[in-house]
Design a protein around this nucleic acid. Structure first.
Length: 569
RNA sequence: CGGGACGUGGCGCAGCUUGGUAGCGCGCAGCGUUCGGGACGCUGAGGUCGCGGGUUCAAAUCCCGCCGUCCCGACCA
């Protein structure tokens, strides 16, 4: 390819509405162009990157025994109504209606298509297991698209679906995919971690997230500095401090705290650290009141609480609840709560004594409240929001919060789709059973953005070899010099001949413009052919990954480029 | 959907407070000089000032409504 004809105009300045490095650089490098919020045209350079990622994914899926097919994007709503997702997916679903008034949707994921399909085609246990995948554009009307390709409303995803006879089979299929995913992300040279994710409200199914480390990532996870613990913030459990050995118990005493209805106000009035206070949060679960105790400087993680009571819904007390039960908002303390209130405490509370907490009366708190003596704790449960610096549950090491981008997510679905869709196969004993399903997603366009986040410097992108749009750029530094042109053309042809993906920058621009563009677009290797180098019989090379420059005799410039390419990550 | 900011040639911005001929830089086209880290000179093309309404002799500028975009939050493969 010659850059003089390539449909790619780089931008000299940062676009005003791009903030994240990947968004900024992909726009500037002419990989993508925005059409509307969260929807982008993939330009020729960008499409080459996408294709390369797809190829890696396809190779690993095929190697794992999955079979590629291609399912429609515009799909009927009926099966979605059966699984309940027509309603549950809410406004995120792109809905449309055909001329006959039938409801359709643009697929955000394809369980409702693939499941009935498999039930029709493979109705016997002898057909199983089977794993089907596709690489197709997905549509989700995100609440807030952002960061360019990182959260788009249209995005390219590889989605795979496994069907097994039983749970053992599902686990085997899942393990195979888990390992295939590791190979995909290893080959993509991503710095990533795998975490067992919050089972959430899907129903306690096992699932893992593959998360590429990036500052702009939307998902926060914790990692022990000693490297032995990784967890999603929604699942992370800090090691509680040791219980006090022989606490010097103060007497319980009331203290006036006029107007101090917040932890901060109480701490200020009494001149104590917020961590000395005991926060008592009230929730309503199935008509009963639940109190959660955490130190005043900590937050309750309501997702953890929700999981504890799933499928019951946990709701934070509102003003009416306080009024109805006679609690004083801002002055609630556990010592006054009756037997009808379940009192949960985070284990961290064991490490403290002589708490300052509400006295269950307006403008009054108490000092010296102690568990056991002054109030009871029905159960200790992990309910605290993890934070930077907490102790690792495994070795007590310091926990650090890091951000990441979810590039892959795999689930053991079980029968949660096959049951409502009545997708059953005949088992060996003749009975009908619902398929045990797994689903496995990889965000192709998201990998592209994540790689851009991880591989760039001030000058531009630094693609790993496997996803670079082209491997080598031959820069013709003086387009008006016949010798330079001849040598550049020769090296370009030789590299192409050797199967290297190469572009020739034959534009009539000054050398500086070409150098800047080469750095911006991020070709792994640059070969500069110009008058200056030629006078010494050399071509000059640059390895973008390190920005190291070198020279090679013009006659062996192609060899030198190939050698350098081999040194690109 | 809540909070914030912004919308002026392809891109980045000024002009708006105090209404009166629509500007600058980059890019684009032509000519010339330059030519290994985003050159310079001259000439030129290109704009419903997001859209609609209102005030006014007169609106990019003031008022009302809407739309769009980005950031934070809620939410989420």
């Amino acid at each position: 390819m010659r850059l003089s004809v390539l449909f790619a105009r780089t931008l000299r300045e940062d676009p005003a509405d791009a903030d994240a490095p990947s968004h900024r650089l992909l726009l500037r490098g002419a990989f993508i162009r925005r059409l509307m919020a969260g929807v982008y045209t993939t330009m020729p350079l960008g499409l080459r990157v996408v294709r390369k990622i797809e190829r890696i994914v396809r190779e690993e899926m095929d190697a794992a025994g999955a079979q590629e097919l291609r399912m429609p994007i515009a799909i009927p709503a009926e099966p979605w109504k059966q699984t309940g997702r027509w309603g549950a997916y809410g406004d995120e679903l792109f809905r449309l209606r055909d001329r006959h008034g039938r409801d359709l949707l643009l697929g955000p994921t394809q369980e409702e298509v693939v499941t009935p399909l498999v039930a029709n085609e493979f109705p016997s246990y002898r057909d199983l297991p089977v794993n089907l995948y596709q690489v197709e554009w997905k549509y989700r009307d995100e609440l807030r698209p952002r960061y360019g390709l990182l959260r788009g409303r249209e995005f390219l995803m590889k989605d795979a679906y496994s069907f097994d006879r039983d749970e053992d089979g599902l686990r085997r299929s899942y393990d195979v995919m888990y390992r295939a995913y590791e190979r995909v992300f290893d080959r993509c040279r991503l710095d990533y971690v795998v975490v067992e994710a919050d089972p959430g409200t899907i129903g306690g199914s096992i699932n893992h997230e593959f998360m590429a480390i990036a500052d702009v990532g939307e998902d926060v996870f914790v990692r022990c500095v000693n490297g032995d613990y990784l967890a999603d913030t929604e699942a992370a459990t800090p090691r509680p401090p040791d219980a006090l050995e022989e606490p010097d118990l103060e007497p319980l005493a009331e203290v006036a705290t006029p107007g101090a209805a917040t932890i901060d106000a109480v701490a200020r009035q009494l001149a104590i650290d917020p961590s000395r206070t005991l926060k008592c949060m009230l929730f309503e679960v199935a008509g009963d009141a639940v109190a959660v105790l955490v130190p005043g400087d900590r937050e309750v993680n309501e997702r953890k609480l929700g999981r504890l009571y799933f499928p019951e819904v946990v709701r934070r007390f509102e003003d009416e609840d306080f009024a109805a039960r006679g609690f004083v908002k801002g002055f609630v303390g556990p010592q006054g709560l009756g037997d009808d209130v379940t009192i949960l405490a985070d284990p961290i509370v064991r490490g403290g004594a002589n708490w300052v907490t509400g006295a269950n009366a307006v403008d009054v708190h108490v000092r010296g409240a102690n568990a056991g003596r002054d109030f009871r704790v029905d159960r200790y449960e992990d309910l605290v929001e993890i934070r930077e610096g907490d102790a690792c549950p495994k070795d007590g090491g310091e926990l650090r919060l890091e951000r990441s981008i979810v590039v892959g997510h795999i689930f053991q679905l079980g029968t949660s789709y096959s049951e409502p869709l009545q997708a059953r196969f005949a088992d060996e004993d003749g009975t009908e059973r619902a398929y045990q399903m797994g689903c496995y997603g990889i965000g192709i366009t998201r990998i592209m953005a994540a790689a851009a986040e991880q591989c760039h410097d001030d000058a531009g992108l630094m693609w790993p070899r496997v996803m670079a749009p082209y491997e080598v750029v031959v820069i013709l530094a003086n387009h008006d010099d016949a010798d330079v042109v001849r040598e550049a053309e020769r090296i370009y042809a030789e590299l192409a001949e050797r199967g290297i993906e190469v572009v020739l920058d034959d534009r009539e621009d000054r050398a500086g413009v070409k150098f800047a563009d080469a750095d911006l677009v991020g070709y792994p290797v640059q070969v500069v052919v110009g008058r200056k180098g030629l006078a010494a019989g050399n071509a000059d090379l640059k390895l973008r990954a390190t920005n190291d420059r070198s020279s090679a005799p013009i006659g062996s410039a192609a060899d030198a480029a190939v050698d350098l390419l081999a040194r690109t990550p």
